[in-house]
Structure formats: C-alpha cells, structure tokens
Design a protein around this nucleic acid. Structure first.
Lengths: 213, 213
DNA sequence: CCATGTGAAGGTATTCACAGCC
DNA sequence: GGCTGTGAATACCTTCACATGG
C-alpha cells in the first residue's frame, strides 16, 4: 500500500461499504470477500479493492477481509471514531424528521443539540433532545460540537452558517437549496433534495408501452 | 453545437443553473452572462458554458443568455416539461416532511399521491394529499404517474420498489439506505442522508485551536 | 470590445488483467 | 484454487485558451 490521497469518489463510497459490513456482521460472518461485499452493496469487486488499497492493507489473499478489522479501518479513515456528536439547526418538518431518524446511529453519529428561532418550539423535547434558542448556537464551541446539520429556510441559510462558523463548527450538512459561503477550513456539503428529484426525469425512458414487469 | 451525450455531471448541475436563473428572473433581469450566473450558483463560468454547449445554443455573444429561453431549454432537456406528477410512498416522519416540502414546486414537480401501509395514516389528508392504502400502488399506471419517491424503512424498500416497477413507474428517488434491484429501464437514485453526514468528518480539519472566525 | 461556444490539454476516476500470497 | 493489491489502459470530466459572432 502506498500513500495516495484518497479520491473523493472513494470517500463517497466508504460509508456504503461500512453499511454492507455491518449487515454482514449481523448475519454472523467474520470474513467477507470483495466479491460478496460487492454483491451486497451494488459496486464492482475491483472497485472495492482499489478503494481500500488507498489507505491500508486489510485483506488476506485467499480468505478475504476480516469484517471487524476492515470496519474499524474505514471508520478511522473517515474519522468517525473521533467525531460522534452533531447539532441540528432548524426544527421544522425536515429537521424534526432528521431528529427522529435512526440512520445516523449506524455510523456512530448522534444529534445531541437542536436549535430553532421559533419561541413555540424552544424548550420542547423531541427524541430526547431539547430545542434551544438559536441565539445559543455559540455555546457549541464550549460543548465541543464541531459538526452541524442545517435544515433552515434558504433565506436564513447564510446567516445561520455564519453563526455556526463563528461557533467553531468545522463541518456543515446543509439542506437549504442555495450556495453557502464559508472559510475554506469549514467543509460544507449541500444536499438539495428537490434537485435530486429534478434530475430523475432525464433518465426515465420516454416510451409508454404498458404491461411490462 | 454538436450532439454529444450529456455527461452525468452536467445533468447533475443543470438543476442548479435552473435555480439560479429563477432567482435572477425574480430580480427582474432578462439577460444573464455565464459569469454572473456562475457567481450566483458557485460554479465556474467556463463550466456553465461547456455544460450548456452539450445541448443547444442559447447565448448571444456579447450579450449573454436570455433567461426565459435558457430556463425553458434546460427544463426541456431535463424533461421537466413532461414529467410533473410524482407519488410518495411512506408517510412517516421523513415522508411527511417531503409532502410539506415546497422545494419540488421550484422545478414544476408536484406530489399528487401518497401511500402508506399503516391503517392509522390511511385516509388522512396532509398538505392537500390524501394518504391511500399501499395496496393501491398499482393504480399509478392508470393515473399516469411514472415518478415515485420512496421514504419507507429499508426492510420494506425492495418490496416497495418491486410494486412501483410493476405499476409502471419509470423513476424512483429512494431514501432507504440500501441497494435496490430494478430493471434497467427504471432509473433509481438513492439518497442516503446518513451517508452524506458520515463522509463529512473526513474533510474536517483535525486542529482545535479556538478563537477563529 | 464583450461574451459565447468549443477544440485541445490536463487531470481524475474507472476498468482491466495479472502478479503475488495464503 | 481463491482472493487480494496494484500497475497500466481506458474512459470521463474539467480546465484552458482562443476563434467566432454580435
């Protein structure tokens, strides 16, 4: 193994592998081959081997990968061993759904704080998290929370992001459909749900012959 | 302009341009240069010109792009002029949030049907849409709805997808964190929210010196 | 003169094929 | 025999630089 920079596309696939490994370990397996993992997650086997080769030797030729060891390796590479606590800003429809969403636990991530500007929401406890006044975002630094999820209206998005940055946040998952300006040291990933739906028609076949299946 | 196949990455950016154009038209503009659009959406100007060059001549050298004309062109390319109605399956926390989400309208897309298996939810009207029994998914064909959004638990995802495919659906936006098997003629886009959050720590700087901004 | 559209160059990621190891 | 790890080949996308048109 050599030290290459890990390609972004590889980083994008690593969580997929992690999910596949967890399913496999629940089924009682101890080892898995790149081929079996490939079948379970829907990626090609050589792609998996190439991806893993960027950051470590995890496999045993003729045997496969020790699942626990590989999962630990991927978690360490993604730094999921160090970052475990996240804050949510914006407890509207989407924000509430995210608070209730169990999927983050899969990756060891926990939403431990929630903020909103609406007085009617402040103080309410949802899924074990008490909603705080958005003015208290600056307490994130002393609480050592450096990861935030933004589910606010796009009009408020840039101002919210600025606050989060000022509070020492280093990574933002943004659901608002807009460009965010942030210092280079802060990573912003924007996930625009409507946009994903909007590119779907392009790939749909035009023909309408009925009775398929 | 020549007829190239449009790169996937370009298709991914087209909805972003569309959003930028709509903001600009609201501000009362009639024409926009690739540079100004670039500034507003956070993409490079030459990238925009290259992307647009794959499917039409929309600009006027020395002037820029007629906003209305370009927006129509992009919508037609993405087939957003033909596909306007979508169905939602799974009216849980996330599904409800999606029903209430105004963002789809931006692209002319409308959720006009909703399904769930929970008897407690069936019959309830949310955001103008009445929740129907999931057993009625097969009525989608006669209603000519070919686009679906899936927000069901991952255990139910494959079975739901099979039903949708049988009902003639041609495109699925899937929020369940799992691989879906579908015929090649059906396009599936999986949007795994937890996965996006999981790759964020990788890009966050390790240093913890306080007092930045 | 200004802004578009596009060949060509450069860079990144995917795919292949196989050497090496268990 | 089976499976990993990786150089090499290929395909794809981005970036540049400029000819072309209003």
């Amino acid at each position: 193994m050599r030290y290459h920079k890990i390609p972004d596309e590889t980083v994008r696939r690593l969580p997929v592998y992690l999910r596949g490994l967890m399913v496999s370990v629940e089924q009682g397996h101890e080892y898995i081959s790149s081929q079996r993992l490939a079948d379970s997650v829907g990626v090609d086997a050589w792609q998996i081997r190439k991806d893993l080769s960027y950051f470590g030797d995890f496999g045993t030729p003729g045997v496969g990968y020790n699942i626990e060891k590989l999962a630990r390796g991927i978690k360490k590479t993604l730094r999921l061993d160090a970052i475990r606590r996240a804050a949510l800003v914006g407890v509207g429809d989407l924000g509430s759904a995210l608070l209730a969403y169990p999927g983050f636990r899969t990756y060891g991530l926990d939403i431990v704080a929630a903020f909103d500007v609406d007085p009617a929401k402040i103080g309410v406890v949802t899924n074990g998290v008490k909603v705080e006044d958005a003015a208290k975002i600056d307490t994130l630094r002393q609480r050592e929370i450096s990861l935030a999820i933004m589910a606010v209206p796009w009009e408020a998005a840039q101002a919210t992001a600025d606050r989060l940055v000022a509070a020492g946040v280093k990574g933002i998952l943004n659901f608002a459909p807009c460009k965010l300006v942030a210092p280079r040291r802060v990573k912003v990933i924007t996930l625009d749900i409507a946009m994903e739906l909007a590119r779907l028609p392009y790939y749909m076949p035009r023909s309408e012959q009925a009775g398929d299946m």
